[in-house]
């Protein structure tokens, strides 16, 4: 996982629930994802303007690719595009996913934060935290298709199998279900103050939402979007990951410099693991 204020990457044992090592990785690491083939971890370094590629099997850094202020990153499902949002510089960059060559650079007012893709990979949706809106961009042309208001400080966003978008409204207490065709809000689902980010279980049945201000995680049925439970996660819960066996939810606590491990069967806090300052992105494997 990444300690964004410390410029470090922590390796944490999922057996012993302790930090194994912490290494300097560059400036401003915030988010990390797996490559399309799953063999490489890609870390977005917003401060040092690069992507760090790490071999997932060996843990050895394999490459650094120059990229201007990447904050949130993601691959389009068709594997053609790689998108990086720059929350600080109000900009969205669209790269060729195979070569990491910049194809389009768009201004985005303001604070482009989290990203999601249309299921066919043709459109990227980006929450604009500073202006309370959501933007849809055609990836091939780099053109803005629509920009619509969704709610104060929108943060996390995901695409459901139906194509419907879910947006966490961090300045409020709910998530929006949004029609990807025109950005119209279909439904609001109350979760908790500071609704921030999403995680879907591997079987696609359960949806988790971090509520950063409330210090909770809402558990939803992914089919009908009904809230089925609430887990306690104090300390500014942010990004989440499930343990490979699906029994534990690992959550980064931005405000208390630790990862919380929650046992899903009981909802109990199983462990709190101290890491570096402002832990943000997390990847469990």
């Amino acid at each position: 996982m990444l300690n964004s204020d410390d410029d470090t990457l922590s390796v944490v044992s999922s057996d012993g629930y302790h930090e194994v090592s912490r290494v300097h990785i560059g400036r401003g690491p915030h988010h990390l994802i797996a490559s399309l083939d799953g063999r490489t971890l890609i870390v977005a370094m917003s401060g040092s303007n690069e992507l760090v590629l790490i071999d997932r099997t060996t843990g050895v850094e394999s490459q650094r690719v120059e990229a201007s202020d990447p904050y949130q990153i993601g691959f389009s499902p068709d594997g053609k595009w790689f998108v990086a949002a720059s929350i600080r510089l109000d900009r969205i960059d669209i790269y060729d996913a195979k070569t990491f060559q910049l194809v389009h650079r768009l201004p985005a007012a303001t604070m482009p934060s989290h990203i999601a893709f249309a299921r066919d990979g043709s459109i990227v949706f980006v929450t604009l935290q500073g202006t309370g809106s959501l933007i849809a961009i055609d990836l091939a042309t780099g053109k803005d298709l629509w920009t619509v208001p969704v709610g104060p400080s929108p943060a996390g966003i995901i695409t459901l199998p139906s194509g419907t978008l879910l947006v966490g409204i961090m300045g409020s207490d709910h998530i929006d279900a949004v029609d990807p065709r025109d950005g119209s809000i279909i439904r609001k689902i109350q979760t908790g103050n500071g609704a921030h980010n999403f995680l879907v279980s591997p079987d696609g049945k359960t949806l988790y939402v971090t509520n950063r201000v409330a210090g909770t995680i809402s558990v939803l049925d992914a089919d009908n979007l009904q809230v089925t439970g609430t887990l306690t996660a104090p300390g500014g819960p942010d990004d989440m990951a499930l343990s490979p066996d699906g029994r534990e939810l690992w959550v980064t606590g931005r405000w208390h410099a630790a990862i919380d491990v929650i046992e899903l069967a009981s909802g109990a806090l199983k462990a709190t693991i101290p890491v570096g300052r402002s832990p943000h992105g997390i990847f469990v494997y």
């Binding site: 500073g130 104060p152 400080s153 300045g171 103050n193 500071g194 201000v213």
Partner: peptide, 14 residues
């Protein structure tokens, strides 16, 4: 954070 939330200033939380 609770004050930022009430004032609609969550953009500034970090």
């Amino acid at each position: 954070e609770p004050v930022l939330f009430r004032l609609g200033l969550m953009d500034w939380s970090e």
